[in-house]
Structures are given as structure tokens and as C-alpha cells.
Design a protein around this nucleic acid. Structure first.
Lengths: 118, 118
DNA sequence: CACAGCCATCGACGAATGTCTATGGGTTCT
DNA sequence: AGAACCCATAGACATTCGTCGATGGCTGTG
């Protein structure tokens, strides 16, 4: 049987057992981008990224531990994830470890964050 | 001991046991945004969203099943997640079920996708 | 030198996630 | 009516994830 989907923008002719081709979506793009999304798919990490974005300067990790209602290992674990995702960099200064958003973030990533953070 | 971090933008005076306040980050924003990120934190769902974005018209789910190397229930499961996230809507037409990106997406979400999809 | 503060890593554990097979409901063709 | 097609849901399973307590390594203080 033939059926036309005209109410939404475009009339599509359908036949049983016959599929349509989809718009091409780059496989590597999907893989890379989903990795970035995973890094941001947690409220704690999002808060960290937003704080670093707003701070515009290195922030000591102990300050996160101090006001985030999570244990120190958990905070450390989330920061490690952000580092693995290539979003932040860090440096030790005496007792303290400072984190900041990497200066060499891809432009697309930077625009994404600018878009995301209120 | 007192230590100054002057090499990065701002000199910060540190004292043991004393923490600094962080930039405020809205808790609800982090919660909501992380939900959106989770919906996009999978290459299959990202591919689906990108295809729907590019198609600019309803797409039958069988077309996704046809060319995504995953079983039909898995495809259906991912679409359900996108629907729960409020990203897509669907309509049944005879045998087929058509999906499309919701027209009433929040402007921020729409800009995010525009930013994301190559 | 001993102590205290800061931090990363390890191991454990429950919860969530992605995938599959199996099943059943709905629709159209013959 | 029966067969074929499309789709969603349920159940199972391995993997990943978020969190914690415990531990140990540094580093500066007294």
C-alpha cells in the first residue's frame, strides 16, 4: 500500500519492506562529540566547568571539595574525568592543586560552553 | 605559609585550612543541563538527532533500524530516551512511526544543536 | 622530626546504561 | 482469515558510573 505523509513538511511515499536513506552523519563526529557530552553529563562536573568558566582563573580543588557536599575522592574523581576529556588542566602549587579550563580548547568546544553556561 | 599564584592571571593568597568562595552556579541549571547532556551522550542518539536535524522532516524509525547496525528494540529504546528528554516527537502512520525534532524546543537547546551539528 | 593539611588512587558496592532475545499488539496486503 | 511487516515493551546480562571509606604520598608548619 502507498501512503503519503503530507501534513508534515514533505510528502513521503512509503512501501513495505523498502527503506529510505537517511542524511549522512559522520561516524567519527558522533563518537567524538558523544565523548564530550559524557564529560558534561553530570551535574557535579557541569558545575565545576561552569565555575571554572566564570572564574577565568585557576581554582584550587579544595574549594570545590569545600562547598560541594561530596567527599574529597569524589571531587578528585570528577576532576580527573574532566582532565581525561581534555577540558581542564592543572598544576600543583605547594599543598594545593589548581585547575583551569584549557586555553587551547577547540573553538567549537569553547562556543559550546559559551552557549551552555548561563 | 603564604603563597602567591601570580603566573596565572590572578594572585591568590592561600592559607592552610581556609577555602575560597567559588563563582555561583545555579543548581537547577546544572541538573537540567546535565539531563540534556545525558540524552546526547551516546553516539547512536547523537546520530539520530543529527539526522533528524538535517532531514528537517519526519523520519520513519524503520530507516534508522535499517542502517544503524543495531537491533530494532535498541533503536526503539534510544528513540524513547530522546522522547523522554523532550527532544523529539512522533506520530504513527499506518505501519510506520515517524519521528522529528520538536518544533517547540527551547531556544537555548536549538542553538546548542546548531552549534553541535556539523 | 613529628604533625597536619591537601590530594590521588584503590577497592567496594549499588544504580544506571546499552545491548540483546523473546514476545505481543497493531496494521495492511493477499 | 492468514501472513507479513512494523514497532514497543519486558526480561536478562555485562559494563560503566557515581559514590564512599581507607590508604599513602607530598608539602609546609611548629
Amino acid at each position: 500500500m502507498i501512503l503519503s505523509v503530507a501534513t508534515k513538511q514533505l510528502p513521503v511515499v512509503r512501501e513495505r519492506g523498502v527503506c529510505c536513506t537517511l542524511p549522512e552523519v559522520d561516524h567519527d563526529w558522533a563518537e567524538r562529540t558523544s565523548e564530550l557530552m559524557k564529560a558534561l553529563a553530570d551535574p557535579t562536573r557541569l558545575t565545576m566547568v561552569a565555575a571554572l568558566w566564570k572564574a577565568e582563573q585557576p581554582v584550587c580543588i579544595c574549594d570545590f571539595t569545600n562547598d560541594m557536599d561530596l567527599t574529597q575522592p569524589t571531587i578528585s574523581h570528577h576532576m580527573a574525568k574532566l582532565r581525561e576529556a581534555g577540558l581542564v588542566d592543572c598544576e600543583k602549587r605547594g599543598i594545593w592543586v589548581y585547575y583551569w579550563l584549557r586555553k587551547d580548547l577547540p573553538a567549537a568546544t569553547r562556543r559550546l560552553l559559551a552557549q551552555l553556561i548561563v
